[in-house]
């Protein structure tokens, strides 16, 4: 029985910083980190490993430097790490990414449970998890806040919905995406780091996988970005001044003018 965690390297911040002197965008000094939601996925896999005795593996797609975050996951207790790295994977949208990950997961023999973070903080689409489940022909649940019970055949989890929570039972193998209610990600132990700082990370290229190269990377991506632009978020605003009572009165009269609130009766 194996649990596979899919992780992604993302920039530590999305904030666009403007140099106060030159007014240009500062790009320096932004480190790369494990997608914060994926740290909950890793932690959950490690907890399940302790409880069930299953094997754990982490899979990522990206440039060779992504080995670092894969080793970080091993220091935390993940048993094996795999990196899909090849120019042929580059430029992938969510569909081509899911296809590559599915190829990688099949290559390592598949897993009984696949865990992904709810979404990545750079792309912010939350699409790769469900797409991957579809490509692996397994059921999925998104936004999992708790695994209530799990055995080799099925699991019951609590999912955050728009209105509250749902308890969902699903047959294994299955895929879940987790949110940050599920656990508190721990830190690696000193032993964990000493054991894994030069641990091998298996790297697969396109030719190692049983996939159709034309469905990978830029070529395999149905969507194309045709234009990017910086949105103008700033708006004209009015400062309401005076004492807090005056400010409140001014606000209430503005909101009445805009027909947002009205006096009763």
């Amino acid at each position: 029985m194996k649990i596979i965690v899919c992780i992604k390297q993302v920039p530590a911040t999305n904030e666009v910083r403007l140099d106060p002197v030159t007014n240009t965008i500062i790009r320096e000094g932004i480190e790369s980190i494990t997608n914060p939601f994926d740290t909950y996925a890793i932690e959950e896999a490690i907890r399940l490993k302790k409880k069930l005795g299953w094997q754990t593996a982490a899979v990522s797609m990206g440039i060779p430097a992504v080995k670092e975050i894969l080793r970080d996951s091993m220091a935390l207790g993940i048993d094996e790490a795999y990196l899909l790295s090849d120019r042929g994977f580059a430029g992938a949208d969510t569909l081509a990414t899911a296809y590559a990950l599915a190829g990688g997961i099949q290559k390592i023999g598949g897993g009984q449970l696949i865990i992904c973070g709810k979404m990545a903080t750079d792309g912010d689409t939350a699409q790769v998890g469900p797409m991957l489940a579809e490509m692996l022909s397994i059921p999925h649940v998104t936004d999992v806040a708790e695994i209530i019970r799990i055995d080799e055949k099925e699991m019951v989890c609590r999912k955050l919905t728009d209105d509250g929570y749902q308890e969902i039972k699903l047959h294994l193998p299955a895929l879940i995406t987790v949110n940050k209610e599920i656990n508190v990600p721990g830190l690696p132990s000193m032993q964990g780091i000493l054991d894994t700082y030069d641990a091998p990370v298996t790297t697969y290229t396109v030719s190692d996988l049983d996939v159709a190269p034309e469905l990978l990377g830029l070529a395999g991506s149905p969507t194309q970005v045709v234009r990017t632009f910086i949105p103008n978020l700033a708006i004209d605003n009015e400062w309401l001044t005076g004492t807090v009572n005056q400010q409140t009165d001014a606000l209430l009269s503005r909101l009445s003018e805009h027909n947002i609130i009205e006096k009763e009766g």
Binding site: E31, S189, M190, I193, L194
Partner: peptide
């Protein structure tokens, strides 16, 4: 430095499995 610190931890009766490490400012 981590390796040297690990030796001190062990020599003072600590357990490397129960020593948390934060590798960077974020952790």
């Amino acid at each position: 430095i981590l390796k040297e610190l690990a030796q001190v931890v062990v020599a003072c009766g600590g357990d490397l499995k129960r020593t948390w490490v934060a590798k960077d400012a974020r952790e």
